[in-house]
Amino acid sequence: MPLRVLLLSLTALVLSACATPPGKHERSYPQQPGSRPGTPTAPPRPGLPSEPVPGVPSPLPPAAPEMVPQEPIVVTPPPPSAPRSAEAVSGQAVTSLVRQARSQRAAGQPQQAQASLERALRIEPRNYFVWSAMAQAYLDQKNYDQAESVAQKSNSLARGNVYAELENWKTIRAARAARGDASGAQAAQDRVAALQAAVAGAAP
């Protein structure tokens, strides 16, 4: 072991002697093909029309990696401080509107619930619990594409909040099942299971 360390440091010494001294690194910027100063003016790789371009609109939201889980999904249990419902992150007005929407939904008035949630979103446009509830209101109205898109948007805004994500994946599962997308629904179910496990792990 000490021998290895000695050998290492020796080699390092020798090597660093031939290295360019610091301060002359201008010509060795990393990882841009063709970006070195002095390369010909003509484009090095003109065109490349066959290059796959992500982000091109597709009828469905872009295939998230979640849809083809190669390995079991593991979600870290949330910290005890993680907000669990809209009430924990919303102001007074939004809380009131979210409650109103809940009772409208329960009363079988998803359209009214949607209107209340839209009001709430105008006040707090990035409240992921409100977006999550909105996805459910779309699901109730059998607007499955919107339900899934809105749930995905809530996931994006949730920045890892397990409780919101769990609700969203349940919505996505239901939306996909209703559209007849069995494998997609199964993938969502795997997510739901992993998130439920994480939530259970967090339970005090």
């Binding site: 484009p43 029309p49 290059e51 371009v53």
Partner: peptide, 15 residues
């Protein structure tokens, strides 16, 4: 832009 071609840029504009 030339690294990916004008078509790719247009696709991004459209998206």
């Amino acid at each position: 832009g030339l690294q990916f071609g004008p078509k790719a840029t247009r696709d991004t504009l459209v998206a």
